[in-house]
Computed example of a mutant assay.
Amino acid sequence: MKWILLGTVVVALAGAGAYLAFKPKQAADGKPAAAAEKGEKDSSSILTVTAVKATASDVPRQLLVTGSLASWDELPIGTQTSGLAITEVLVDEGDKVKAGQLLARFDDKVLRADLLSREASLREAQALAAEAEANIRRAEELARTGAISTRDLDARRSTALTTKARVGVAEAARAQATARLAQTEVRAPTDGTIAKRNARLGAVMSAGGTELFRIIRDDRVELLAEVPEIDIRQLAVGQTAELSAVDINGKPFIGTIRIISPVVDTKTRIGTVKIDVPHDPYLRPGMFLTARVRTGTQSAPVLPEEAVVYRDAKSWAVVVDAAKDDKGHHTVTAREVQTGPRDGNRLAILSGLKPGEDVVLTGAGYLKTGDKVIITPTPADKVNPLPAN
């Protein structure tokens, strides 16, 4: 009996200890400690951010156009000869050429022989003409003494005129042979760059057939921009265009509108605008580029670029509600915005934001609509002292 009572007391003491060990703890305010810890966690999850006010500013109004670079004037170079084989090709694609530079040469053996024959015929005709002139002079002396009749004198004069005409024919034939011989040499009609070469050694070409070369005249290229008809009215000849391509210093190329097409395609409702671009080896025909044409100015809110968040191929600004809750926290709203031109680190907002609204500057990428934030003043830029001399 004694051992039974002792066992009952031990069990009771063990149960009391377990109760005390697992009893929920009370916080200082009487709430369960777990609830207090949860409240502390909720408070610590509120992000502290800096904000900036959207300010109205005059920003350039720009029109974005796209297109491909093309040669300002691409010249096809052919041959005026037929049935001759190419014996020399002196240039290749990409070579710079000057006006009059020799590009290719055809086999000229037959034409040189023909020229020699024409020159011999000319000398023969000149000799006969000289003999006929001498005969006239002798006939005129004989006619004065009555040794020959007037009829014979007229016949000799006619013969002299015929031989003189034959000299003219021979001279024309020689000039024609000289011209045909000159056509065996293909020369550049202007300065430029060889864009394409079809000339091959041994190839027999014909006049009016396959072109031998294509030359980019004066190395000038231009942007052929395709512009919808509704936007063409904003453009004018002489307006500048900032290209998407940059030079060796990282600065964008600047072009100038040269021609605005007077017609619009009836199917696509698109017109062509030709934009002169600077001469640079990087800008080559066929390249696809975009250009921003400044068409005027407009007033729009402006933000520092770091205040704009790019997510899901869209631009967002996290706007701060001016009102505070009872704990001094602000509510934020993520708005999709349309960005416009930039000036250094400033970015124009064309839609989605009003001047005077506060926008989260730092920490915007971690926020979503409905989140609470604590606004802290933006620290002033620290100015480092000048080094001592």
Rank of each mutant, 00 (worst) to 15 (best):
E305L: 05
V308C: 05
V309N: 00
V309R: 00
Y310V: 12
Y310C: 03
Y310M: 08
Y310W: 12
D312Y: 05
D312Q: 13
D312K: 07
A313Q: 10
A313N: 14
K314F: 06
S315N: 11
W316G: 01
A317M: 08
V319H: 13
V319I: 13
D321I: 01
D321Y: 02
D321M: 01
A322Q: 11
A322N: 12
K324Y: 09
D325H: 10
D325G: 11
D326S: 12
D326M: 05
D326H: 01
K327E: 03
G328A: 00
H329R: 15
H329P: 02
H329E: 14
H329V: 11
H330E: 04
T331S: 13
T331V: 14
T331G: 02
V332Q: 04
R335Q: 07
E336H: 12
V337R: 04
Q338F: 12
Q338M: 12
Q338A: 14
G340N: 09
G340Q: 06
P341I: 11
R342N: 15
R342E: 11
R342I: 06
R346K: 15
R346L: 15
L347E: 01
I349C: 12
I349H: 10
L350Q: 04
L350M: 09
S351V: 06
L353G: 07
P355M: 02
G356A: 12
D358Y: 13
V359P: 03
V359Y: 07
V359I: 13
V359R: 05
V359M: 09
V360S: 03
L361P: 01
L361F: 08
T362H: 09
T362C: 00
G363A: 03
G363K: 02
G363T: 00
G365Y: 04
Y366G: 06
L367T: 05
L367K: 02
K368P: 01
K368I: 01
T369F: 10
T369R: 08
T369M: 04
G370N: 11
G370C: 05
V373H: 03
V373W: 01
I374K: 15
I374W: 07
I374G: 07
I375C: 02
P379L: 03
A380W: 00
D381L: 14
D381S: 10
N384A: 15
P385T: 01
P385F: 01
